[in-house]
């Protein structure tokens, strides 16, 4: 199938591809979930992946930091590059890769530790902080960027699981950015949140995009429309259309995309 693919209009600086998927095919045993996709994640952009359940968007997202490696029988063909380097190269350290390409999941999953330790966990195991003061700074900075600092600064040593759902999700985002990632993958980060918590996370995504490259899988098309610069539509393991979000939502090029975003699917 032909993919309708337009890159963003060139601004003063031409956008640079942060990650590149080249002819990516993913198999779960015999079943082929991703059927040869080429896509670039541009630096400092928010790209949304949308599509009906089972279209492969989450599988594709998880390929960018090799999260699928943990699934038995899952195998990937094709190449994924981070700053031009193959993430499947023999000398690629997967732990380092996941620090550079962080992930936020659908359900907030704070560790059963204090708020402070949740955020400090990554910098500690990666040896990113020089001493206690440095670690404190890093934790505060991450919580501030995640928009959570003012809400938790007086109870940093309370358990992270005691926070509300929306706060827990922002804590997970703080945890992801504490290790200074370059790319953040988000798999339906707001599906378990109420509208106000969702609005906060969406605002956060907009702020974070100034520093990071963000790819987000969402079932809410309004959310894709609100937060992303580009939107990619997936259908049965294929990338059908990727274009500037306002184009996709006002005038999609492909009839399948049109049917899906106007709710005429199925």
């Amino acid at each position: 199938m032909n993919t309708t693919q337009n890159t963003q209009p060139a601004g003063l600086q031409a956008p640079r591809a942060k990650m590149q998927a080249q002819d990516v095919r993913v198999f779960y045993g015999e079943h082929q979930a991703i059927k040869g996709i080429d896509l670039e994640l541009m630096e400092n952009e928010v790209i949304a992946f949308i599509g009906p359940s089972g279209c492969g968007k989450s599988t594709f997202l998880r390929s960018f930091n090799r999260m699928n490696d943990t699934i038995e029988g899952c195998r990937l063909e094709g190449r994924i590059l981070l700053d031009g380097e193959d993430i499947h190269a023999a000398d690629m350290d997967v732990v380092m890769l996941r620090a550079r390409v962080g992930m936020v999941f659908q359900k907030p999953n704070p560790f059963p530790k204090s708020i402070y330790d949740n955020v400090a966990y990554g910098p500690r195991i990666h040896g990113l902080a020089r001493g206690r003061g440095d670690l404190d700074d890093r934790v505060e900075d991450s919580l501030r960027r995640a928009g959570l600092w003012d809400e938790v600064k007086d109870r940093l040593h309370a358990p992270g699981t005691g926070l509300s759902g929306g706060q827990q999700q922002r804590l997970c985002i703080a945890r992801a950015i504490a290790v200074s990632p370059e790319v953040i993958l988000m798999d339906e980060p707001c599906s378990a949140l109420d509208p106000i918590a969702t609005a906060k996370v969406e605002e956060l995504i907009a702020e974070l995009s100034q520093q990071y490259t963000i790819a987000i899988v969402t079932h809410s098309m309004q959310q894709a429309a609100r937060v992303s610069d580009r939107t990619a539509y997936f259908h049965l393991g294929e990338l059908i259309e990727v274009n500037a979000t306002d184009k996709v939502f006002t005038h999609p090029q492909n009839a399948l995309t049109e049917a899906y975003i106007t709710g005429r699917f199925g």
Binding site: Q222, A225, F249, T250, H251, P252, E258, I261, T262
Partner: peptide
């Protein structure tokens, strides 16, 4: 309804 695409147009 937050219409999109053909509905929005």
């Amino acid at each position: 309804r937050q219409p999109a695409a053909i509905d929005l147009r």
